[in-house]
């Protein structure tokens, strides 16, 4: 019988190969996939999140844990879908707005969201409003993350939000904004639903917006 505490430990330590082996073994032993996720995998990620918040570990360890989690989820996904259930806790479209090439902050937020169980569609940098609208429509996302690092590109975030309204999609999606020159007051002014000044608080904000905290 597979010791499921080892699955918890494998994800906590970011040991992807071990997590895959243990997940497969547990499934062969007819373990309940939902129980594996809820009682072991999510708990491991919660502990990783706690350690990160307490400055005990860094982002690389957090991302390794996220990758181990994702690998296990990929194994469980077909089984859960067969049972009529899903594994994603939310779908996020994310991108850097038109005229802006910066993407390291956006990539970090995307990686951390993925690690926490979100499905993330990263559409890249220098994206115009039509591309954001198209991605929201195509993927039926419930969160849109907009990033900008320049004072001259941050006003474009408002253009994207206006485009969502014109496309009739504004009510379907919560918009979160971030980037060095962006502030809460700017987010409020342009009609965004949320703002975050760090990648880890972005995850908390997204969960908050979706009511899953």
């Amino acid at each position: 019988m597979t010791d499921l505490n080892l699955l918890y430990e494998a994800i906590l330590k970011g040991k992807k190969k071990t997590a895959i082996e243990l997940t497969n073994a547990a499934l062969e032993e007819k373990a309940d996939p939902k129980s594996l996720i809820d009682n072991h995998m999510i708990k491991a990620m919660e502990e990783v999140g706690r350690q990160f918040e307490n400055h005990e570990i860094f982002v690389p360890e957090l991302l390794m844990a996220g990758r181990a989690m994702k690998a296990s989820l990929n194994i469980l996904q077909p089984v859960l879908q067969g049972q009529g259930a899903g594994v994603s806790i939310g779908k996020v479209v994310i991108g850097t707005v038109k005229g802006d090439l910066h993407d390291i902050g956006k990539n970090l937020v995307a990686s951390m969201l993925e690690g926490c169980g979100f499905e993330v569609i990263d559409i890249g940098i220098d994206m115009d409003s039509a591309k954001f609208v198209e991605a929201i429509r195509e993927h039926k996302a419930n969160i849109l993350g907009l990033s900008a690092l320049l004072t001259t590109t941050m006003p474009y975030m408002k253009t994207v939000i206006e485009a969502l309204k014109e496309a009739g999609l504004r009510d379907q999606v919560k918009v979160i904004v971030g980037g060095a020159p962006v502030s809460q007051s700017f987010a409020t002014e342009i009609g965004a639903d949320g703002y975050s000044d760090t990648a880890n608080s972005a995850v908390t904000k997204v969960k908050d917006l979706l009511g899953i905290l």
Binding site: G99, T151, T152, T153, M154, P155, Y156, P181, F186
Partner: peptide, 8 residues
């Protein structure tokens, strides 16, 4: 120095 928030 750089511009305040505005489109370029």
């Amino acid at each position: 120095f750089t511009l305040p928030p505005m489109k370029a």
